[in-house]
């Protein structure tokens, strides 16, 4: 209702603390949902009823910027968002995780987000948001690959291709430097756009584009495993709400977050395999490519972006973990 949402500590002991957990995916099999349900399960069972978690799968908003707004206003307590949408809150440093070819593989990614860099980023987010956002875990939405009307054998093949990807920022710059034309198409319209030559290709992770049948279109059936983005997603909590909890509750809350992280990643990794196989079974062609020239092209862009937002030290740390 009206007014303040802070839960007084004394009150918390008697009445369960309600946690509104929300993400933007509506499918019940989505890894986000699996992760959130794990969070609910652990938080409720380990807290002796101190927590009551309700999970909203897309019903509190399907846009990420809306989820961030909700978290800030206290209309949601735990949300998942991507770096792009976080940086609009004014915390530019988050863009680090969106740089192309920042990570070599999931192992490298895991070392970064679960290690020192992840801790620093979490601290930065909490400070720069005036103690409003607390990172309680790093999730992933998979590794993104190219898919289009022809298999890539070298970077040259991208020349003049209209690719559906971000049309601003470092990512757009990267695709432009490779010779392609970044084009903006709404996700729900992408199937049509691929089918009708509005774009010649796109890039995403297997579970996402295979579920949308993009691999069944002529402009989407050649998949080249470019692996240009091992995506990071932030599992964020309302920091004020967290601070109001008893130390014991905080411990349980974080335990639940850890369990959720594991569940989400496991589900995603499994689905990535599953959907890759579905794509192949449906007749899509998958090929691999030497990533070295792609990585080489990305390096100066990474340097430039890191310098611009003043996170050269973080970038170095990420690279050192390779």
């Amino acid at each position: 209702g009206c007014g303040s949402k802070e839960v007084a500590t004394e009150e918390a002991a008697s009445k369960p603390i309600k946690i509104v957990a929300a993400h933007n995916q509506t499918s019940p099999e989505n890894p986000y949902q699996i992760g959130m349900l794990k969070f609910k399960e652990v938080a409720e069972s380990k807290s002796n009823g101190a927590f009551e978690v309700e999970v909203f799968a897309g019903s509190l908003g399907t846009s990420e910027s809306e989820l961030v707004e909700k978290l800030k206003l206290g209309a949601a307590d735990v949300v998942v968002v991507s770096p792009g949408f976080m940086s609009q809150t004014g915390i530019e440093e988050i863009d680090l995780f969106a740089l192309p070819y920042l990570f070599n593989n999931y192992e490298h990614w895991g070392k970064v987000v679960d290690g020192e860099v992840g801790k620093k980023m979490a601290k930065l987010i909490q400070e720069k948001s005036n103690n409003e956002f607390k990172v309680i875990g790093y999730w992933t939405a998979g590794v993104r690959h190219y898919y289009g009307n022809k298999p890539l054998t070298s970077m040259k093949d991208l020349e003049g291709m209209k690719i559906r990807t971000q049309t601003s920022g470092v990512v757009a710059k990267y695709w432009t430097q490779m010779g392609s034309i970044p084009t903006s198409v709404a996700w729900g319209e992408l199937y049509q756009s691929l089918q009708q030559n509005i774009v010649d290709g796109a890039e995403n992770a297997y579970p996402y584009f295979v579920q949308q049948n993009h691999h069944k279109t002529d402009n989407g059936k050649y998949i080249t495993e470019t692996g240009h983005d091992y995506t990071t997603r932030f599992l964020l909590a309302n920091a004020k709400k967290f601070d109001a909890m008893t130390p014991e509750q905080q411990k349980t809350f974080l335990e639940a977050a850890d369990a959720a992280v594991k569940a989400e990643r496991d589900a995603l990794y499994a689905q990535e395999e599953e959907y890759k196989n579905i794509a192949i079974k449906d007749g899509a062609e998958v090929n691999e490519i030497d990533r070295a020239p792609f990585i080489e092209l990305a390096q100066p862009l990474q340097d430039e972006a890191a310098k611009e937002i003043g996170i050269e030290d973080l970038l170095k740390q990420v690279r050192d973990l390779k």
């Binding site: 707004e69 800030k72 609009q88 809150t89 004014g90 601003s168």
Partner: peptide, 11 residues
């Protein structure tokens, strides 16, 4: 609340 939030394309 959102006064200082930025546009995505025009930061």
């Amino acid at each position: 609340s959102f006064w200082n939030y930025r546009w995505v394309a025009i930061q």
